[in-house]
Amino acid sequence: MYFGKKYQKRFQSDLITLMPRLWRFALSLAGQKDLADDLVQATCLRALERESQFQAGSNFAAWTMTICRSIWLNEMRSQHLRKTGQLDTAIESNLIDPSPSPETNIFAAEVFKQVMRLPEGQRSVVELVFVEQFTYREAAAILGIPIGTVMSRLSAARKTLAPLQQEQASQMKKGELA
């Protein structure tokens, strides 16, 4: 638990440091850039309100992402569904800016597109375990699902994404990727 103003200032600073990871997780849940923005904003404000509930020494990133998941499932997802009638159709595949190495960038864009095309449940598990480096157990706790469900979602995602791994290995062999 944080006490006093110096901790409150630090709490905000920790939230800002966490924002890139939080935004990626929000995108994996929401599937759209603008919804991810709204979700991150709502999460940060909720986290600030609940600052006194955070236990010092526990995993700050996991705590914040649990809030994010809860807001998405309990508040924003149903609103989105009511508005659009679509549960999971948006695909953000144009967020990668073409920069340094064309080969690296084309491949990175392809990876991003394939991950974003996964169903929401698989996408969020892949994001937490593969991108944010949470353990299976931590991902299960953040998403509020059994570890077995994490493993089965990952298993399905691995099948879809396996060709990317082969492609990367072949490009690295040819020296096209760093």
Partner: peptide, 16 residues
């Protein structure tokens, strides 16, 4: 998990 570094590459520039 061989896919870990591959997927991370796809998210390296995300978010801007």
């Amino acid at each position: 998990e061989g896919l870990r570094p591959v997927v991370q590459q796809g998210f390296a520039e995300i978010p801007e």
